[in-house]
Design a binder for these strands. Sequence first.
DNA 1: TACTCGATCGGA
DNA 2: CCGATCGAGTAA
Length: 199
Amino acid sequence: MPEIISPASWQRRATLRQARSLLGKYLVRRGHLPHMITEVEAYDGERDLACHARVGRTRRTEVMYGPGGVWYVYLCYGVHEMLNLVVGPRDWPAAILIRGLDGCTGPGRVTRLLGIDRKLNGKPAAVTEELWIEDHGVRVPPRLIVASPRVGVNFAGPVWAKKPWRFSFDPRRLPKVPGTRSFATEIEEDAPRSRSDSR
DNA sequence: TACTCGATCGGA
DNA sequence: CCGATCGAGTAA
């Protein structure tokens, strides 16, 4: 029996694949050290009731309707800046939420650590800009990747809230590879620590 | 213009 | 568990 693959389901596969492929890549903010991405979530299309694009094109979601490779940054709960990478072709609204880095979990904490806010919304993820992605050669073995339901999206109803579109891995389980350069000895300390942070 | 409600976090 | 804090989305 042949299976018909619709353009939408094809695009969905691409979004989920790109979400997984971000794991092990490095998020680099100009003036900061690179940080390995360890946790992401996929938001895909207008049918995805957890995705902001569920309401169609609006001023806020417009950036997701453009071609991938740009940042989508929005304010959550009036308090936290959320960082997403727009993916997919023009007119297919999809984005990957950066939820965690090696040593920094939580989407709000990630943006606070790197001083990211809505000024970067719509900006390209390019080295010529303020924020970009680097491949440092880290390969995350698929068996290390855990897929689980997205966080904080119960409002989307049981079907969409349960989609296992959150991907993460434990960086401590990565195999040690000779030739993997450590950036630990570089220049500066990585910025704003909260006052209560002892050390 | 007047509501309502978050893709969260830190403190009680 | 709860409050913070504000803008997007919707109804009017």
